[in-house]
Amino acid sequence: MRCQICKIVVCLALILVAGCSSQTGYVPPPQGGIQGKPIGEANLKGTPLNDPKWRAMGITTVEEKERFLKEKEIFENRDIHFDFDSYALTDEAKAILNEKAEFLRKYPLVTVTIEGHCDERGTNEYNLALGERRAHSAWQYLVNLGIDPDRMTMISYGEEKPIAFGHDEASWAKNRRAHFVVHH
């Protein structure tokens, strides 16, 4: 809570600084062609971002936005993996979920879809159910870490949407996963 207040104070300060700089420096209108952007004091803290969509998420500078997009990419690209016919979380999966919780805490306004996937060896409909359990395991763990359950929806693709197409353990291991998609 205190941290939240700190953040708000920092944000307000940034907005004030940005506001001041725009009063001191004259910004000429663009006259066609590629133009350099004027650099003011505020750039030391970040280029202000005026898009209300981002500001609503608490992201007020270009740098923050870029950091968010980078972290989002890592968040989405890092699946957690499961053993054959299992939906129990491995220690490695738990470690990755801890990181995911951190991201979700840092950006409290994003929502996420947790997708459960399976390898091709089970039967199709049972795999849809197994995928659901895998998504649920991840969901449960994140809820236990304090993430608002309503921010996370689940879906199961079973074995219908593989990312590796071989018929061997290497491919199967990649496909036994929960995948995370961020909405913002």
Partner: peptide, 10 residues
């Protein structure tokens, strides 16, 4: 069907 649930199987 109206939105039944986020998971619908078999």
């Amino acid at each position: 069907f109206p939105n039944l649930s986020e998971i619908i199987i078999a």
